[in-house]
């Protein structure tokens, strides 16, 4: 037990140090000892380039609901942190574009624009919705309530762990609002 704490303390300390270094690198002008991000559209791959070395990377927003474009951890495929981007705006144009493309993928969810029906079945609640991506029918458990993230913003997670987000309940049409009302917070 103690041993584990001991180890993780050390790990934390070294990570802290890394982060500080990374922050400093972030401030460096593009090039030099900084890094570059590039996006390969065909393969949907984010590449992290530093010192001529190319590493396939993943972008992980730390606060996907509150600040999806800020505080992003760039990690390699083994999930080691390569660098930490405080805000996409800190990056120069190409890297920024690349990161935004990667984030579009990492932060994908279904954006609900209309609720056509919510029906109860045994143990399940079936939702029929129109999303920006097309129409969809999905199920939640009866006691799995939508969770509120921000004012009037709700996330519904279905039995398969897919996410459906209502950006603003007040912007839904009246029928959708009526259907959603009993489930809102």
């Amino acid at each position: 037990m103690l041993l584990q704490i001991h180890c993780s303390l050390n790990e934390d300390r070294s990570q802290l140090k890394n982060r500080r270094e990374n922050d400093e690198q972030n401030k460096l002008p593009f090039g030099g000892s900084g890094f570059l991000l590039s996006w390969n559209e065909d393969e949907g791959k984010l590449l992290f380039v530093r010192d001529e070395k190319k590493i396939t990377a993943l972008a992980k927003p730390c606060f996907p609901w509150s600040e999806p474009f800020e505080k992003i951890s760039i990690r390699d495929l083994e999930s080691n942190e390569l660098t930490f981007v405080t805000s996409v705006n800190d990056l120069e144009a190409e890297s920024k574009q690349a990161l935004l493309s990667a984030l579009k993928e990492a932060c994908f969810y279904f954006a609900v624009v209309k609720i056509t029906a919510i029906e109860e079945d045994f143990e399940l609640r079936t939702w029929s919705v129109e999303t920006e991506q097309g129409s969809r029918r999905f199920q939640t458990k009866l006691n799995a309530w939508p969770s509120q993230v921000g004012e009037n913003r709700y996330i519904v997670r279905d039995v398969n762990k897919d996410l459906y987000v209502i950006e603003n309940t007040l912007e839904l049409d009246t029928k959708s609002q009526k259907l959603f009302w009993p489930l809102s917070d």
Partner: peptide
């Protein structure tokens, strides 16, 4: 290779050079 996003899973089928032969995106369903 599989990469998970908030509500999307990407499967990349790669050849020996690490290039993608096929990339598929699906929802978690």
């Amino acid at each position: 290779r599989e990469i998970g996003g908030l509500s999307v899973k990407k499967y990349v089928f790669e050849d020996n050079e690490g290039d993608a032969l096929m990339t598929i995106k699906v929802s978690y369903r």
